[in-house]
Write a protein that binds this DNA or RNA. Structure first.
Length: 873
DNA sequence: TCTACTCGCAA
DNA sequence: GTACGTGCGAGTAGA
């Protein structure tokens, strides 16, 4: 069946604009109204399946109505600039859907719609009119329904004649005009009769049908203020009625047949969505979200005419065959300088001594994507690269940590450069991973290095604008060099220690497996939560505590509740613990030990949203410590030389100290200044007791609340960690906030701040954007709120330790210490130190860490050392 | 072989 | 009432 949809483009654009928070794409184009409009189009097309479709727009400011009444729509606030800029895109959007749009000089969109709907009505064509303007409801008929968007863009009333009759107490659609004549319309500046509102108007119309009817029978009305007003404003009423009347015979030049929808593909739509960065919609359409540009970058594959002496600025880039640059093969090396691009092979790179000297001389300003990788690859070639001044990867992370950074493409494409292919398209993935032929490869490398060069300036400008240049220049970039050295040095791990533990554990695990199978009465894979679930909850019929998406939950907290139900549980718990140690740590770590007896982790500097580092292959930031059994793993981590020790220095309660500083809460500051135990102090305040009355349970709970603050967990999260109800957890949090009023104040203001600015920041201006803070989805919004509260705390702590690392590295240059920084674990630094340096090294490091950044509360560092990492406690 | 899911370690 | 801190990695299971 044929169906016509007519949209009032202007009024719907308004609705969409005000319904959604201001959004922009990377280029700064506002997109919220366009997005909302797109949602409506999709919804309508899907739900109504129209055969004919048109969007009508207002042509300009003045229409025939202004000739009748110069004040028409006077006093209306002008369209916000942020919306006006989107209207052209909305027309483009409509075109990309192959929907006709139309506007007519001197007429409003209403009139176009009125005229077309009249034609449709005469043809008995089902018509739907979509608008955010009530005026159009006068057009409702048997065939014509008006969809009126109440609030937002999805809450819609369907105005049929029946609906109108019900809503307006028996009025017919065409009487809407009469009603407007009497009551006017503030938004269009239609005067009407003063003193007459909806109620009175309806009453009069029920009796006299029309405005003319009212005046023809005006004498019947008994003397009243209302009657006087009606008489005094007869002209107004009649004019108002005319103004409100939609012209259903406008001189339009389109016919309904012209509005037939055609299926001409999604090409334009995809292109537009890419420009606007409607990523989700593109995903839904199964279209690649990546834009591309097939430009060719010319390059030379030799350095024969390279003018080493006269280049002051260059981008350099190493291409490797795998991500792990500590052992990867170099596939090529590229330079972009003086508008020329060079790509050379590993052989050329190794042999060209002029090039080495050029990289080392320190007079050229280099930029790179991933300076840590660049430094390490140079180091592997025996080149001490100097003066890398800019890292586009780090800059991208600083500008917006939420951006995915996985290759050069992912960074430069944010800056409008699309000629670089992404790594997956060049190398493939999974089984099909391969190095392409030389020509393809070199072309790609040339593009990367050129793009790095071209992006740099834009990034510097943005960093300056956002007061973040120093974060790059003075923190992240120098830190990359520090991390490079740490990764390159690695940490010595004694394989024999691990092998011994492995054998010991194997015996114990085998025994446990046997016992568990005996208890179960069958052999099954204990590592399979699915099989374990069947054994526990079906075979042994233990009570089901919790379910996961796919079946029974067998997580620790569940098993602990079942402890007394069956002896198998205890064995499973121990098995789980040992199996984890065995597979992840003891076996996992052994695989990573090099022939030199070392493990070289890599620190990811551009991943964690808060500014923290992360560690991979292997992750050395989660080596067990809490349980003795696991802690023993640390015995395998040793100094690399005789007469050295492992030295660990950690910040004590750094996040809570940052919190005290940021919020300025006196109670908390006092506790830290007096060097009190913060969890005890928290317990004293929250439970309102004296120090002596704080029980270990109170302290434990206070500690959990502090933990929650630091990691931004919810009341639910806290309830889980304390094993209490959500309600009780919420009360804890409330009590906590009442005990530290400045903290409460901070939590409130930071959320407001985030709403207003769209981001929160750390002490060193690291930003994290919080777009979901105004989301109507409770979960997303709550998450954004916690993010806003937590990120400045965790992120500032991350800033501080990074600062300490950079300062440490700088000060080491003037010292004779042989000590080496090996690892960073969020709030602690691990070193290996010659025993005879200990006495001087300890205060040296502690002083740097203590004073890395001045806060209004003291920072406190505790250090310890031993023959192994285990002993440094 | 890839992906989704569960589980568990650390700060 | 909702669904419920991060990041890394091992392991199972199903397509």
């Amino acid at each position: 069946m044929e169906k016509l949809v007519l949209i009032d483009g202007n009024s719907l654009s308004f609705r969409a604009f005000f319904a959604l928070p201001l959004l922009t794409n990377k280029a700064g184009v506002y997109t919220n109204a366009i997005y909302g409009f797109t949602m409506i189009l999709d919804k309508i097309i899907k739900e109504e399946e129209p055969t004919h479709f048109m969007v009508a727009f207002d042509a300009g400011k003045t229409t025939f109505r202004n000739k009748m009444y110069s004040e028409y729509k006077g006093g209306r606030e002008k369209t916000p600039d942020e919306l006006r800029s989107q209207l052209q895109y909305i027309r483009q959007l409509v075109e990309s859907y192959h929907i006709k749009h139309y506007e007519l000089e001197n007429y409003e969109a209403d009139d176009i719609i009125g005229t077309l709907s009249k034609q449709a009505d005469e043809k008995n064509l089902k018509t739907i009119i979509i608008t955010g303007d009530r005026d159009l409801t006068q057009l409702a008929s048997e065939n014509v329904t008006i969809y009126y968007t109440k609030k937002g863009v999805t809450d819609i009333d369907h105005y049929t004649p029946e609906f109108i009759s019900e809503k307006y107490d028996g009025l017919e659609p065409k009487q809407i005009i009469e009603m407007k004549g009497l009551m006017g319309d503030k938004s269009d500046n239609i005067p009407g009769v003063p003193g007459i509102g909806e109620k009175t108007a309806i009453k009069l119309l029920k009796q006299y049908d029309t405005v003319d009817g009212v005046y023809n029978n005006i004498d019947e009305l008994k003397q009243s203020k209302m009657k006087e007003k009606l008489i005094d404003n007869e002209d107004n009423a009649k004019l108002s009625k005319e103004l409100a009347t939609i012209n259903r015979d406008s001189p339009i030049e389109v016919t309904i047949d012209d509005l037939k929808l055609t299926d001409n593909g999604d090409e334009e739509k995809i292109k537009l969505f890419k420009t606007l960065e409607f990523k989700q919609l593109l995903d839904q359409m199964d279209a690649s979200t990546e834009a591309s540009d097939d430009r060719i970058i010319e390059y030379q594959d030799h350095l024969n005419d390279f003018d080493f002496a006269n280049i002051k600025e260059a981008a350099i880039h190493f291409e490797t065959n795998e991500n792990n640059y500590l052992k990867a093969d170099i596939l090529g090396f590229a330079i972009h300088a003086n508008d020329k691009t060079y790509v050379i092979s590993l052989e050329e790179l190794e042999q060209n001594k002029d090039l080495h000297a050029w990289l080392e001389n320190g007079n050229v300003k280099f930029s790179a994507y991933d300076s840590k990788k660049t430094i390490i690859l140079c180091e592997r070639l025996g080149i001490k690269v100097e003066n890398i001044q800019f890292d586009t990867m780090l800059a991208s992370y600083i500008l917006d940590p939420s951006r995915t950074i996985d290759d050069v493409y992912s960074v430069v494409s944010e800056f409008g450069i699309y000629y670089v292919p992404n790594d997956e398209s060049i190398y493939g993935k999974g089984k099909k991973l391969h190095v392409p032929e030389r020509e393809v490869l070199f072309e790609c490398i040339a593009k990367k290095v050129t793009a790095i060069f071209e992006t740099k300036e834009k990034m510097v400008e943005l960093l300056k604008e956002r007061a973040q240049l120093s974060l790059h220049d003075d923190l992240e970039l120098p830190l990359a060099r520090v991390l490079a050295e740490m990764e390159y040095i690695g940490i010595t791990v004694d394989k024999d220690t691990l092998v011994e533990m492995q054998e010991d554990l194997k015996v114990r695990i085998d025994k446990l497996i046997e016992q568990i199978h005996n208890h179960a009465g069958s052999e099954f894979n204990i590592n399979s939560p699915k099989q374990l679930g069947v054994v526990l909850f079906e075979d042994l019929k233990l009570p089901i505590i919790k379910k996961t998406k796919t079946g029974y939950s067998t997580a620790v907290d569940v098993l602990e509740q079942l402890r007394n139900e069956h002896p198998i549980i205890e064995d499973i718990l121990v098995y789980r613990q040992l199996a984890k140690l065995q597979s992840t740590y003891i076996e996992g770590l052994q695989k990573m030990i090099t022939s030199e007896g070392k493990i070289h982790t890599r620190f990811n500097q551009t991943l964690a949203q808060t500014g923290r580092l992360s560690s991979i292959e292997p992750n050395l930031q989660n080596i067990p410590i809490r349980l003795e059994e696991g802690r023993k793993i640390r015995k395998a981590f040793r100094p690399s030389k005789e007469n050295h020790v492992i030295f660990a220095a950690d910040y004590s309660q750094i996040e809570l100290r940052v919190l005290a500083d940021i919020t300025g809460d006196e109670h908390m500051k006092e506790a830290f200044t007096a060097n009190e135990d913060i969890h005890t102090t928290t317990a004293m305040r929250v439970f309102n007791v004296e120090k002596e009355e704080v029980t270990s349970n109170m302290r434990r709970q206070a500690k959990a609340v502090n933990f929650g603050i630091v990691y931004g967990i919810s009341d639910y999260g806290l309830s889980q960690s304390l094993g209490i109800t959500r309600k009780a957890a919420k009360k804890f949090i409330d009590d906590y906030l009442d005990s530290f009023p400045k903290v409460k104040e901070y939590m409130d203001t930071i959320v407001q701040d985030a709403k207003q600015k769209g981001y929160v920041e750390t002490l060193l201006h690291r930003r994290r954007y919080t777009p979901d803070i105004t989301n109507r989805n409770f979960n997303l919004r709550s998450f954004a709120e916690r993010t806003a509260m937590n990120t400045p705390i965790q992120g500032s702590a991350a800033d501080i330790i990074k600062l300490a690392m950079v300062q440490f590295s700088n000060k080491m240059k003037e010292k004779e210490f042989k000590a080496k920084l090996l690892l960073q674990v969020h709030d602690e630094l691990i070193f290996e130190v010659p025993k005879d340096e200990l006495e001087t090294f300890k205060p040296f490091v502690e002083d740097i860490m203590d004073n890395a950044l001045e806060l209004s509360v003291p920072l406190s560092v505790e250090s310890s050392y031993g023959e192994t990492w285990y002993d440094a406690k």
